[in-house]
């Protein structure tokens, strides 16, 4: 009866910001990013790829409570770029990588359909 609406898992609330940056003053070049209405899909992806960046010293994420759709992402850089720039860089790389994945997939699929037609079997062309 008092369960929260399921759409609260992915719809931002009134006036809620998708992502906010809080500078961590006690640590140099470090920021916490709070991502609202996101989960491990984005949290894990960003943290893992930030760690691959040579200019990033530290990156990690946590989801404080499994029922609360918020991701806290901490990023510390080496000072050559700031955490926000590092995050944007990784985001752009990931959009490009998924774009390439999509093109690769369509290319492979087209090749496959072409091959299936060549075989003359009835299985091709169904998709």
């Amino acid at each position: 009866m008092n369960a929260p609406d399921r759409f609260e898992l992915f719809l931002l609330g009134e006036g809620e910001k998708k992502i906010t940056e809080t500078v961590v003053n006690s640590i140099p070049n470090c920021s916490d990013f709070m991502l609202k209405k996101e989960d491990h899909t984005v949290g894990n992806l960003l943290a893992e790829h930030l760690k691959k960046d040579p200019q990033v010293m530290f990156a990690a994420y946590k989801i404080g409570h499994p029922n609360v759709p918020e991701v806290l992402l901490r990023v510390q850089t080496n000072g050559q770029i700031n955490p926000r720039e590092a995050l944007v860089k990784v985001l752009k790389e990931l959009v490009a990588a998924y774009g390439q994945l999509g093109r690769e997939f369509q290319k492979e699929l087209a090749l496959r359909q072409y091959a299936d037609q060549g075989e003359g079997s009835g299985s091709g062309g169904a998709i």
């Binding site: 940056e21 984005v42 985001l91 999509g102």
Partner: peptide
């Protein structure tokens, strides 16, 4: 194949939304 293509699209939208916000 539409599921794969849509999945890629959805995650790209998610990430692009974050880029936009940042």
């Amino acid at each position: 194949d539409g599921i794969v293509a849509e999945g890629i699209k959805v995650i790209q939208q998610k990430l692009a939304g974050l880029i936009h916000e940042l």
